[in-house]
Design a protein around this nucleic acid. Structure first.
Lengths: 243, 243
DNA sequence: CTCCACTGAGTACGTTGTACGCAATTGCGG
DNA sequence: CCGCAATTGCGTACAACGTACTCAGTGGAG
């Protein structure tokens, strides 16, 4: 009877945005989602509280509950909106390698635009409209070539690679942001600890990683593309030989 | 001056557990970490609040702060403790394929024992003692064969695969647990939504996935091993031909 | 026009992480 | 052996969170 009734529904996606009678709603799910994303981009996911998001669109916290059953559902909406940012027009094109490269690049770019997406805990693949479109396009790339089980596994592999790499890329910056320290200050602090580990001599491979990381190497982009090529080779191996 | 002073330290790992003078501590970091893991295993990560964990060892919330600077740091400790559950004795053994398979199996098993680990947001690879040991052992497997950059990429790939698969395996169960519904009730609800999508006919590939998932197929273990083999083939391709 | 489903939004509650204070305990310097 | 100071366990208190409940006001259906 109150707000949007989540009574019989498991996800937001089954709740219609607007019923019939009554005054015209002033806001909208899309507007609220947008505002939440704006806040998260600027100040991190933890800053995107109900009150803060409401203030962003110039209203009080409780007004949001006319549009969204809970904060978790709002996060779901945000995730779907972000999925919508992936530009996969024309996919599948027939060239699976190009398609998957395109997807990987888009996904990485999106993560870098919205690093907080890694903090949105989703226990199941989302069923929002944008996410459903993504499934059709992305899985459609390999669907003609492999059984669906195999396809799922390969896509999971690709996603895993991209996510892993991006998390690593983002990690340091995110931690820096949350520490609230200045960059040089933060660098000094963390280097101090790492240096102690290195000097101890007990961690030769860790040392190797660290010293390697400190000297110039391939650009992030090149590293990403290089690893991606390997993943795609791996995909190719799972395809029938004629493709 | 109060509690454990996190003044100059970026991570817990640089904070000594115990200084000199004063009364003997009744508890310990290890004990608190253990209690927190027990709670998280039984009731989920969100149940592992400071008060709940403290109650678990029979004290008040504020006592924990004599051992741990913050809840985030406690999560860090928990993650490291879980890493310690991975049994990699004898790795690297010289047989890289066996080693990586062993690691993948151990990692998957650990995630299934503690599904909440997916909710611990770590922005950087941990630097706890167990995590450092893991780095040495795991990266040591491929270190003789490939440059460190390549090694990092391959390990990221492997981790990504395992994590992706396990998240999928865990997802439904986790969501069921959080909904608080009975299993048949939950099944009915989610099937209703999915059925609607399927019946709409707009999502052929989604439909394929769903119908496929409903009929019996390979066991989870076999699926995992199958995909893993493919990942390892991919790794093999990146190694010098003689190995 | 009347009705009532709906709106925006304030107030209030339970729960969280944790800052602070204080009495009790211990090891160390004398 | 004696105190001093460091450090303990832990209660109280607070700010911030998600959100249940409330109510006056709005506007389309009858």
């Amino acid at each position: 009877m109150y707000a949007i009734s989540g009574k019989d529904d498991m996800t937001i996606w089954t709740l219609p945005e607007r019923p019939a009678r009554g005054p015209k709603p002033v806001y909208s799910r899309a507007q609220i989602t947008e505002a939440a994303i704006r806040v998260a981009d600027a100040e991190g996911l933890e800053a995107a509280t109900m009150r803060r998001v409401a203030a962003e669109i110039g209203t009080g916290a409780m007004s949001l509950y006319r549009y969204v059953p809970s904060r978790d559902d709002l996060l779901e909406l945000m995730a779907d909106r972000l999925t919508g940012e992936l530009d996969l027009a024309g996919v599948p094109s027939g060239d699976w390698r190009a398609d998957l490269t395109r997807y990987a690049d888009e996904l990485r770019a999106m993560w870098r635009r919205h690093p907080w997406i890694g903090g949105v805990r989703r226990s199941l693949p989302g069923l929002g409209p944008n996410q459903l479109v993504l499934i059709e396009r992305l899985m459609g790339v390999l669907d003609p070539h492999v059984p669906i089980d195999e396809n799922l596994g390969l896509v999971a592999l690709l996603n895993g690679y991209v996510e892993g790499v991006v998390r690593e890329e983002i990690g340091a910056a995110e931690q820096l942001r949350r520490s609230g320290l200045s960059e040089p200050e933060w660098m000094a602090r963390s280097h101090a600890h790492v240096d102690r580990l290195v000097k101890s001599g007990d961690h030769p491979i860790f040392t190797k990683i660290v010293t390697e990381a400190r000297r110039p190497h391939l650009s992030r982009d090149d590293q990403f593309r290089h690893g991606l090529r390997r993943v795609l080779d791996c995909v190719a191996a799972a395809l029938p030989p004629a493709t």
